[in-house]
Design a protein around this nucleic acid. Structure first.
Lengths: 144, 144
DNA sequence: ATAACTTCTCTAGCCACTAGAGGATCAAGA
DNA sequence: TCTTGATCCTCTAGTGGCTAGAGAAGTTAT
């Protein structure tokens, strides 16, 4: 007889994609993964399309895309004739967001590093870190 | 008669420190700010020590310190004779965390930028962005 | 038969807020 | 005095993206 490809249980899908079991269930709950068909004993049963979809999701998450963005990208991926520009726009927007976060963190790094420049001075009374935090004027980084 | 310094209401404290009213109440709830004394009509009433403390908190938050870290720093600030090294250690740990996040984001930026390099190619079917996300092998960035 | 494993559902927690409902109080003007 | 609008109160629930745990039921290996 031909190899009958039974559906994978959730643990198997988890091992194949590197996405944890509760996370898969969570993705189903929020609609990012479809509701899996169930076996007679109510276990979820997955096929290769699910493996692909979840791998796509994992990959996009690893690149920092948000759940909503991934949903859009998956929709686009399902329509091979729609214009590529939409997917590009999402990725470019994400790139700008990443760059903005990097800039912000670099500003923070500069400020925190500057706070530490002088090194420890014995007691808190002379501590540059506490002093800078207490006195806004000594620092440049603030949300303005 | 001398200028009697009545306590400030929460909105005043908010304006002076730039911390929103619900956030101040939240800080009280989690114990980062002390429970403010109340007026006869149950309004919170603040003094200059509260202004200082909240300004310290706001400043530290702007530098990305977590609530727990700020709690520690405030404790230290209250003991001027304790060693400065403790505060420095917290700040150095924070600096390392910031640097780790920057590194991670830079790796993401590289990958997402590489995904976009080729530019749009008409339809999703030939879309590099979708292709990279679908095929792990085309990408280097993953949590491994 | 039994033990170990996996799966199921459900609830609650994480961080640092933010938003909104529904009500009380206050200050200033007509 | 009445009214208007600002401010204040408490409480609950939502954000994102999971993670942890309880308690029960089913599966697999020995």
């Amino acid at each position: 007889m031909a190899t009958k490809s039974e559906g994978l249980p959730i643990g198997m899908l988890s091992r194949r994609t590197g996405v944890k079991v509760p996370t898969i269930r969570y993705y189903e709950q929020i609609g990012l993964m479809p509701s899996a068909p169930r076996t007679a004993s109510n276990r979820r049963s997955y096929g290769s399309a699910d493996v692909d979809r979840l791998a796509f999701i994992r990959h996009a998450r690893a690149l920092g895309f948000g759940i909503a963005e991934i949903g859009e990208l998956l929709d686009l991926a399902g329509h091979p004739d729609s214009p590529c520009a939409d997917a590009d726009a999402i990725a470019r927007r994400h790139l700008r967001a990443i760059e903005a976060r990097i800039s912000r963190l670099e500003a923070l790094r500069t400020e925190v590093a500057r706070m530490l420049e002088a090194g420890p001075h014995g007691s808190i009374g002379q501590c540059r870190v506490i002093e800078v935090l207490a006195d806004h004027a000594l620092c440049a980084a603030d949300g303005h």
